[in-house]
Amino acid sequence: MYEKILVPVDDIKSAGLALTNAKEIAKATGASIVLLHVVTPDSPLIITDEHVAGVHAAASVVERAQQDESVHLANQQEILQASADEISSDGVSVSAEAVLGTAHTEIIRAVKNFGADLVILSTHGRRGVSRAFLGSVADEVVHDADVPVMLVDRT
Rank of each mutant, 00 (worst) to 15 (best):
V39Y: 10
T29Y: 07
L134V: 10
D153H: 14
V129M: 14
V71Q: 14
A98I: 09
V119F: 04
V142H: 09
I5T: 07
I87Y: 04
A59F: 12
S93D: 14
V119H: 05
L17E: 15
S93I: 09
D85S: 09
K27S: 03
E86I: 04
S43W: 07
G91W: 09
A31P: 07
P8K: 11
L19V: 02
V71A: 11
K23L: 12
T20M: 11
D10V: 03
L134D: 07
H104Q: 12
F133E: 06
E97D: 13
A110R: 06
V94F: 03
A58H: 10
A22E: 04
S32W: 02
I46P: 08
V147A: 04
L151E: 07
S95V: 13
F114Q: 13
H56G: 14
L19E: 00
N75T: 13
V94C: 14
L121C: 03
D153K: 15
S83C: 08
S83M: 09
R131M: 06
V141P: 00
Q81W: 05
A74N: 07
T155K: 13
K4G: 02
A57K: 10
R64C: 06
I33F: 01
V94P: 11
A57V: 14
L151G: 06
A84I: 05
V39I: 15
Q76Y: 05
I79F: 01
L73M: 08
V9F: 09
V55C: 00
V61N: 02
T102F: 11
S60T: 12
I108T: 13
V62L: 12
S136T: 05
T29C: 10
L17F: 11
L17C: 00
N113R: 14
A28L: 10
V52N: 09
Q76E: 13
S43L: 15
L45E: 12
G128M: 09
H124Y: 04
D42Y: 13
A59N: 13
P148W: 11
V141F: 03
I47T: 09
A84F: 05
F114M: 06
V152D: 05
I47V: 15
H104T: 15
V39D: 10
D144Y: 09
L100N: 08
A15D: 03
R131F: 10
T48N: 08
V92C: 01
K112S: 14
V38K: 04
S14D: 10
S89F: 04
L19T: 01
A145F: 11
K13L: 03
E3Y: 11
T155R: 15
L151C: 11
F114I: 00
K112P: 04
H56V: 14
A116M: 03
K4R: 15
T48P: 03
S83L: 02
A82H: 08
A18W: 02
M1I: 11
T40L: 01
A82V: 03
V7I: 09
E69Y: 04
T29W: 04
A58V: 10
A15P: 04
H72D: 10
E86N: 07
V129W: 13
R127A: 09
D144F: 11
G128A: 02
A138F: 05
L151M: 08
K27H: 05
D85G: 09
A145K: 07
Q76R: 15
G16I: 00
V61G: 03
I25E: 02
T123C: 02
S14V: 08
Q81T: 14
L151T: 10
V92Y: 00
A82I: 00
